[in-house]
Amino acid sequence: MKPSLPAPPADWRPTAAVFDCDGVLMDTETAWAGVQEQVCADYDVAFGEASLKELMGLSAADVARWITDRAAEAAAEKGREGPDPDEVYEHLIEVEASVVSGILEPLPGALETVRAFAERMPVAVASNSTAQVLHRKVHALGLEGTITTWVSSDDVTHGKPAPDIYREAVRRLGVEPGQALAIEDSPAGTTAASRAGLWVLGVPNGHDEPLSSHFIADSLADPRVREFMTGWGL
């Protein structure tokens, strides 16, 4: 896979870094897919590979809306009333909390990379997770004393792929978007970061979905990440 966006000027250097969490720092993507599948089944909504790709990287609120809409369609066909959107969202969060809490392990290279950046610049984590779940993830990784801040979908009006989360992250870090590097693995995340004006390092971690990125590496364990950092004088 190659970067889909042109690289920044040769003399560009990041002065802040913003990491996505799921699929970048920890392997919760498989568990999250299982959560979505379980909740879809609970509301008689079909869930398959196409659904998984459509929902990849979206916030819990957006996923809950997606499930609610399809559950309502299925209910209408049977002459029934669809589920309450708030009920679907709350059920999704409950299932996520119970599933994700058991698999909070860092991906290879994740902690080393975050710490290497944090030694040289302010660092944030920007995630479509809810505030409660993201707090648990950051503390499970032991990063609460390393990073400057973390931004959840509860902190902004719209989750990824809207740019809100990344705009809030760089605001808290006190830098302009063009000074910051975003590290993302999903189409929704790379779109959010690029729309916010950040330069984007895509780390697909094994999936082949197209990413809106200026740099590309297989994962944070890929030697290319260290090569990029060396080139930026880090």
Rank of each mutant, 00 (worst) to 15 (best):
K2G: 03
P3E: 15
P3W: 14
P3A: 13
S4W: 13
A10D: 03
D11R: 13
W12I: 06
R13G: 07
R13E: 09
P14H: 12
A17R: 01
D27G: 00
A31P: 05
A33V: 04
A33L: 14
G34T: 13
G34C: 06
G34V: 02
V35T: 06
A41E: 14
A41Q: 04
F47K: 05
G48C: 06
E49Q: 03
A50H: 09
L55F: 03
L55Y: 10
S59R: 05
A60I: 08
D62P: 00
R65M: 11
W66D: 07
W66M: 10
A71N: 01
A72K: 09
A72N: 12
A72W: 04
E73S: 14
A75E: 10
E81D: 12
E81T: 02
G82C: 01
P85H: 08
E87V: 10
V88M: 01
L92K: 05
E96G: 06
V99I: 05
V100T: 13
S101V: 12
S101C: 05
L104V: 06
L104P: 00
E105D: 15
E105I: 06
A110T: 08
A110I: 00
L111N: 02
T113A: 12
R115E: 14
R115N: 08
A116E: 04
M121H: 07
M121Q: 11
A124T: 15
S127D: 08
S127H: 02
N128S: 10
S129V: 13
T130E: 10
L134N: 06
R136S: 14
V138K: 13
H139G: 12
A140H: 11
L143P: 01
T149L: 04
W150Q: 09
V151T: 09
V151H: 04
S153A: 14
D154A: 07
T157A: 15
K160H: 03
A162C: 01
I165K: 00
Y166Q: 06
E168M: 09
A169M: 03
R172H: 03
G174C: 02
G174V: 08
V175Q: 11
Q179D: 07
L181T: 14
A182F: 01
I183H: 02
S186K: 09
P187L: 09
A188R: 01
G189T: 11
T190S: 08
T191F: 10
A192L: 06
A193Q: 09
R195F: 10
G197D: 06
L198M: 03
L201H: 07
N205P: 01
G206T: 10
E209C: 02
I216P: 00
I216D: 09
D218E: 13
A221G: 00
D222L: 03
D222Q: 08
R224P: 00
R226P: 02
E227K: 02
G231Q: 10
W232A: 05
G233S: 08
